[in-house]
Amino acid sequence: MTININSFKDNFRLYYRPLCLFALHYLHDIDNAEDTVQDCFAELWERKDSGMEISDIKSYLYSMVRNRCIDIVRKDSLIDSNVQPSDLEGIISEEECEERSYDEARLWTAIDSLPEKCREVFLLAKRDGMKYEEIAVRMNISVNTVKNQMNKALKNLKEGIRKVYMFFFG
């Protein structure tokens, strides 16, 4: 299909976050990942007027981002020419990386749309590994409130993962 303004915008909304998460598995830096994905979309935007046909825009975008990430990592590392994506535990395959990027984008969106207090409790507990008692002291709320907020957060996240498409439109 050819790219016009509307299809560009649709694809952008659909794939922007998953692509950022995908790039993050290569670059491990959120600012770099976001810049890289934006560069790719900017290039696509430039090309849209040329009437270029792209049969599968999703894989086109994913390869574009992957190639750019590999270039960046190679440039920085000087000698390691074998660039592979990884998560916190180690190297993962490219297929897994692409597949996971959707789920992770959904999680990101779900966390982003939590109510502020609820999100803060969730991040302190899950990301920073704080105990409920510590969070209660820090935020000046009761341990019970912390527990309630945590339950709410986990419930929202689970629902968020189910509501697949809604969450691409962050």
Binding site: I5, F8, K9, F12, R13, Y16, R17, C20, L21, L24, H25, H28, I30, E34, Q38, F41, A42, W45, E46, D87, L88, E89, R100, D103, E104, L107, W108, I111, D112, R119, L123, K126, R127, L157, F169, G170
Partner: peptide, 28 residues
């Protein structure tokens, strides 16, 4: 595992799709 990876890099308000889209279509 996915959640841990996301949380490692999560920053509120980052990866703002609408803002990024404006930036790119606006630049042109």
């Amino acid at each position: 595992k996915n959640l841990q990876f996301v949380l490692r890099y999560y920053r509120h308000g980052k990866l703002d799709t609408a803002k990024a889209l404006n930036k790119i279509t606006g630049i042109r």
